[in-house]
């Protein structure tokens, strides 16, 4: 294992995060605060409790997941797409590093950034609503697992994309709608039964449900199923990355 290379890539990516601190951290925090104002305070004041917790409190795990998902994908896809775009990828490809080391470096940095962001959003949320976490370790486990899985997914998008439009396309057209429809702002149980069945095809439902369970012990689906679905998605992403490096897809001619 070329640990020095992993460290070099990881620190290089983290340096980019610190350089772009305003976009990286501040803007998601500001937008999350706006969600709290709009959904929690303005609309939430008209909604009674959801499954025993106030509406403002109920949406916290969903909001954190919304940011973690979108930021993981954005960080990781940009992290690998940019060297491809400017050509500096030549150095990574010609270095004595294995693809596992490249993935650990890039995905590790993207996931780290999203986890930090998730924690900051939780701290911000605590300023607006009383926050209590029933299972802190499970909460961290879901947070880390989701950040890593979606960073890996972002990494795949970054390699697949051959233009900035494509880089934006999957997050905009698929991930954001799935997150909004995945129970960020409501309980799946609030839906009519037909819609509920359709919603259960949305993988994001399982992520948010498991994460919310670690906070309030409220879940739309069983925790084991949530964990299983997340691990399953992680496995699919890992197989795709393995295939990309084995074939050199969009990396090597």
């Amino acid at each position: 294992m070329n640990y020095r290379a992993i460290r070099a890539i990881y620190l290089f990516e983290m340096a980019r995060t610190w350089r772009t601190l305003l976009q990286s951290i501040v803007s998601p925090v500001v937008s999350t605060s706006l969600y709290f104002v709009v959904f929690g305070a303005a609309i939430g004041s008209r909604i009674t409790e959801v499954e025993g917790v106030s509406y403002g409190t109920f949406i916290v795990p969903g909001l954190v997941m919304l940011s973690v998902l979108t930021q993981s994908i954005a960080n990781a896809s940009f992290g690998i797409y940019f060297p491809k775009f400017v050509g500096t990828i030549y150095e990574i490809l010609s270095a004595p590093v294995s693809y596992i080391e490249i993935v650990i470096g890039y995905v590790g940095a993207a996931a780290t950034k999203s986890i930090i962001l998730g924690l900051i959003i939780m701290a911000t949320a605590a300023l607006f609503v009383p926050l209590h976490i029933q299972h802190p370790l499970w909460m961290l486990a879901f947070l880390v697992l989701t950040a890593v899985t979606f960073s890996l997914f972002g990494f795949i998008i970054g390699i697949w994309a051959d233009g900035f439009e494509k880089l934006q396309m999957i997050p905009m057209l698929i991930v954001t709608p799935l997150t909004f429809l995945g129970g960020s702002f409501y309980s799946v149980n609030m839906l009519p039964s037909g819609w509920r069945t359709i919603t259960l095809l949305n993988p994001v439902v399982y992520l948010i449900s498991g994460f919310r369970w670690s906070f309030y012990e409220i879940a739309d689906v069983s925790v084991a199923l949530s964990l299983g679905m997340t691990l399953g998605f992680l496995a699919i992403c890992m197989v795709l990355v393995w295939w990309i490096f084995r074939t050199g897809y969009r990396l090597k001619n």
Partner: peptide, 18 residues
């Protein structure tokens, strides 16, 4: 890279090669 310093980018290359 555009926004890295010369020292940082050259040091990065050394690390990348282990």
């Amino acid at each position: 890279d555009s926004f890295e310093t010369v020292w940082a980018t050259v040091s990065f290359s050394r690390g990348l090669f282990g």
